[in-house]
């Protein structure tokens, strides 16, 4: 028997840590999704698909811009000392993933803007001749390759950072796994491919994105398994943390919402779609994106419950 009685009841800490509410999972999801879209944009640009009017790579940068801004808005809402947010950009703290993230995000916006400027909407070209001039200047083989490389590299950095942000917090054993970076990256890629699958106008592109989403979902399933195996083969605190989703209070949301509805069911739907047994529908992609959001909510919630033994 062990009974701990504390005279303390600090807000956000006692009886259980709940420092991060809905804002951080939403930010991590949107950040991961944008990261995936940047990688897809980079890929399509390298393949020269930006020359085609119907290329999904002309839709993704603008969408990413909006989604990332919404994510940053959520992050800003989470801050307790909002007026001091500019302090992030007065220093670079090499051991702080959040500092890395702040600077990565500062680079992500110009990369997205450059990708957007390659194929701006006609109305923008008409209204602002400078946009048209910029577009022509960037649309050279070297320019396109540079923008593609920037989107690929920054997309990977952003996607991994969203996971490292949590995994660097060793006080919470459920988060303390290096696998979280790759897990959030591949989840972001699957959400991006799912979104691309939904909005793609070109049949060949839709098939390509659905097939690649299936690959991402299969990898995500494998990485989830690795994540749990890693926790189960680590210290007692990590094993206890894994048990929170293996019979513990978070078992149902993790297995039903994240793994079942977010990975396995859409994978089955999309496998049927790419083998032409059923038509492409938005159901699979919407489930993938909802699953990506659920993954962040569950991981953030479980991590805050997991802890080290007191003595």
């Amino acid at each position: 028997m062990r009974e701990l009685v504390l005279t303390r009841h600090n807000d956000l800490i006692d009886p259980l840590v709940r420092v991060w509410g809905w804002e951080i999972p939403v930010y991590l999801f949107l950040g991961g999704w944008v990261a995936g879209m940047m990688i897809l944009v980079g890929y399509f640009l390298l393949r020269g698909r930006n020359r085609e009017d119907t290329c999904v790579c002309s839709v993704l940068p603008g969408t990413s811009f909006v989604l990332l801004s919404l994510g940053m808005g959520a992050l800003f809402l989470d801050l307790e000392h909002k007026l001091y947010v500019w302090r992030l950009y007065t220093t670079f703290e090499v051991t702080s993933p959040m500092s890395w993230g702040a600077w990565i995000l500062l680079l992500v916006y110009p990369a997205l803007a450059a990708a957007f400027a390659l194929r701006p909407p006609g109305i923008l070209r008409d209204l602002f001749p400078a946009v048209d001039r910029l577009s022509r200047r960037l649309d050279t083989p070297v320019g396109v390759r540079g923008i593609a490389a920037a989107n690929l590299v920054l997309g990977i950095a952003l996607g991994i950072y969203t996971g490292i942000l949590l995994s660097a917090l060793g006080a919470r054993p459920f988060w303390n796994s290096a696998i979280l970076g790759p897990l959030f990256l591949v989840s972001g890629l699957s959400s991006a491919a799912a979104f691309g699958h939904m909005v793609a106008r070109h049949q060949e592109e839709r098939e390509l994105l659905a097939r690649s989403d299936n690959v991402f979902l299969a990898i995500e399933l494998f990485v989830v398994a690795l994540f749990l195996v890693g926790l189960l083969s680590s210290s007692q605190a990590h094993v206890a943390a894994a048990r929170l989703v293996l019979g513990g209070p978070f078992t149902a949301p993790f297995w039903v919402l994240v793994v079942g509805a977010g990975i396995v069911i859409p994978l089955m739907i999309q496998l049927l779609a790419v083998t032409h047994r059923i038509a492409h529908t938005p159901v699979g992609p919407l489930l993938v994106m909802a699953g990506g959001l659920a993954l962040r909510f569950v991981i953030v919630a479980v991590g805050q419950v997991s802890h080290w033994a007191k003595v």
């Binding site: 600090n10 800490i13 006692d14 840590v17 801050l79 307790e80 060793g170």
Partner: peptide, 18 residues
Amino acid sequence: CIGCKACLASCPYDARFV
């Protein structure tokens, strides 16, 4: 301090508060 609460989450002793 921007109040990001990363330090609250990082402390195994839960010694910090906002």
